[in-house]
Nucleic acid binder design. Sequence first.
RNA 1: CGGGGUGUAGCGCAGCUUGGUUAGCGCGCCUGCUUUGGGAGCAGGAGGUCCCGGGUUCGAAUCCCGGCACCCCGACCA
Length: 467
Amino acid sequence: MGVLTSQSEDFPKWYQDVLNKAVLAESGPVRGTMVIRPYGYSIWERMQAEVDQRIKACGAENAYFPLFIPMSYFEREAEHVEGFSPELAVVTHGGGSKLEEPIAVRPTSETVIGEYMGRWIQSYRDLPLLLNQWANVVRWELRPRTFLRTSEFLWQEGHTAHIDQEDARRYAVRILEDVYHDFMVNVLAIPVVVGRKTAKERFAGAINSMTLEGMMGDGKALQMGTSHELGQNFAKVFSIDYLSDKGAQELCWTTSWGVSTRMVGGLIMAHGDNNGLQVPPVLAPTQVVVIAIKDDPEVIETAGRIEAELREAGVRVRVDTRVDTSFGRRATDWELKGIPLRIEVGPRDLAQQEVTIAVRATGVKSKASLSGLSNKVSETLSEIQSKMLAFAIERRDERTAECSTLSEVVEAAGSGFARIEWDLVGEKGEAELARSAITVRCLQRSDGSLPYSEDEPGLVAYCARAY
RNA sequence: CGGGGUGUAGCGCAGCUUGGUUAGCGCGCCUGCUUUGGGAGCAGGAGGUCCCGGGUUCGAAUCCCGGCACCCCGACCA
């Protein structure tokens, strides 16, 4: 009997078990909300730090806009309001009386940020305007699932305004590639499929939505991030315009892009196994845990010394000296939490001037000499990172089928992704696949690059069941 | 919103059909002792508006009426 429900028995139940046993999060008191517990939040904080750093490297600056948005803002952009009004939370009362105009709790901030961009941009010299905010948003989801689809979630949303379509497009792609794709592959070790959304799947109010799709342990897809070209749709209704160097009044071209706490759910489902979560070393809030096996002064003292030495070497490490708890319990707990590397220190090890090293990803234990331990640890951590990515790539490729008919797609989507020529699907095929709960996750050119339009000939559609 | 289900200790559940002493069980929690190299054992202990409101009855977790909440399956979504 395992600690968790096994993945093959019931994947959703396994996911719930991991959330509980690894002490990541639980449901909040209001339907669809979640409480993120300290360990879960520390993983999110690491994601934030890595993403934030990349966003800043692309030149965007952080700012903060209000949670409350006048309802009237939403009504300005027809497609946007149509897309979002069903899931808006609306405040009708404040300070004990009914409000003149209802206030929406932001589901996303294109409107309010558009309003202020319009005020701030006057000249072509003010462009591009590159903003980002870290915030919570609320969407009244009909079927919530912890981290994957919650009524309130945390995210970053970038909003930019550009001088022309080309500059806007280039920036939206740059965020997609240099921030999201780089982060997901090199930090999360999740080999996402990057492509363009079909018209049906496009963000409400965008002219182009691009996406990064991760494959989960059960072969289903998870949209892990998006970057949108908004064209001039929001510029028109929020008067985001500027005076060009030729003295003409011109409309800006805007973009928006985001990743959310959903990535925590993606991390769990992409790397987790029947022993629990697995956090890639580059991301892990705790990369190494040093377990003092026995209540012995020399053991405790050595564990502390190893901790200090590793911390000095830049390793995120913590020591476990809870010697009144059995070893098995502690080992299992750290495995559930997915700590990549465990160092066990006991009297038997010390007699040999060595320690035991256990790798979470493989379950393999080996001995390592006390001297030169920090080098050994750093090397092992980077090996684990590579192995996790290699394993995820292998699974993605194994479970991606080349198809030439819709019925083959339906078959293949039962266990993974299906690739098929987009010309063989089209809007009609997309609707037909939807009846089998399969969606076109994204479109790519045959060489894997991003299409300018879904009408380009020779595109490949990635189809899958999705969360 | 349509269909199904569940509300009893922190969590998971039994008890309800056929009303009746002090409402049980497992896990977790607390104390003590023995343990500790893969979820320890024994002993003792704490913890309950039985979802809410009304009704029937000498007596309701249990029967009746009304309400609420949550979960699962579909349409929506980062």
